[in-house]
């Protein structure tokens, strides 16, 4: 059990260190992860304490025999430097078994109010509460339904992209596929040299024996301006 406590202490320490030193870079999901870790560890500790094998701490009696104002080296070592002396300042905090007086007062007030209420009023309030919760439940359920239908709609949604289109577009940007036009030999362009080049390329490709049909048409179109010239 001490080991468990030690683990929790370590993770809290690590988390605090993170918060102090990396507060400007730390991400929210990271913080949540840390919280999840802590709550998991606290849960296991709680379970351990509740299990039947462990004697209830309530049955153990702790009696402060001696209070002293002097520094206690042994105690300091045990608590890793947190408590220097077992004196009047710390004892009420460490050996507290009841809530603080103010808290007790408030609890008392609420208890008084509860006992002071008559049965009819109580029934009314319970009814109102039930109504409210069922209303909220309804709202949540309807939301869930609409979300579920949304989700199913999303999965059934038609394709938003097409692999062929991607390939076509990339080909267009890379090599100008589908972008080349029958160009007039005009301003700034030397006629002849321009259509020449694709021709050379296509001839070599044709020699490699790939998709001859498209090549033919390409050659035709690219040699048009040449002939007109």
């Amino acid at each position: 059990m001490i080991q468990r406590v030690q683990e929790i202490k370590n993770s809290i320490g690590a988390f605090l260190f993170k918060l102090e030193n990396e507060y400007h870079t730390i991400q929210w999901p990271n913080v949540l992860d840390n919280f999840a870790l802590l709550s998991g560890q606290l849960n296991t500790l709680g379970k351990l304490l509740k299990s039947e094998k462990v004697p209830a701490f309530q049955n153990c009696v702790l009696l402060p025999l001696l209070l002293s104002q002097d520094r206690d080296a042994e105690l300091e070592k045990l608590t890793e430097g947190r408590v220097f002396a077992f004196n009047h300042a710390v004892v009420p905090d460490y050996l507290r078994t009841k809530p603080e007086p103010e808290v007790e007062e408030r609890i008392q007030a609420v208890c008084n109010k509860a006992t002071g209420m008559n049965a009819e009023m109580a029934q009314k309030q319970i009814n109102a509460m039930n109504k409210l919760t069922s209303n909220i439940l309804d709202i949540i359920n309807s939301h869930r339904e609409s979300m579920d239908s949304d989700a199913s709609q999303k999965t059934s949604m038609s394709q938003t992209f097409s692999q062929t289109d991607t390939s076509n577009l990339i080909a267009a940007t890379l090599t100008g596929k589908g972008l080349k036009t029958n160009r007039r030999p005009d301003i700034g362009q030397q006629p002849g040299t321009m259509p020449n080049q694709p021709q050379v390329q296509q001839k070599t490709q044709a020699a490699m024996g790939k998709a001859p049909s498209s090549i033919k048409t390409n050659i035709k179109s690219s040699s048009h301006p040449y002939q007109r010239n």
Partner: peptide, 11 residues
């Protein structure tokens, strides 16, 4: 996307 494949498919 493998650009070499796309350039080749085009031919």
């Amino acid at each position: 996307t493998d650009h070499r494949k796309i350039t080749m498919n085009q031919t």
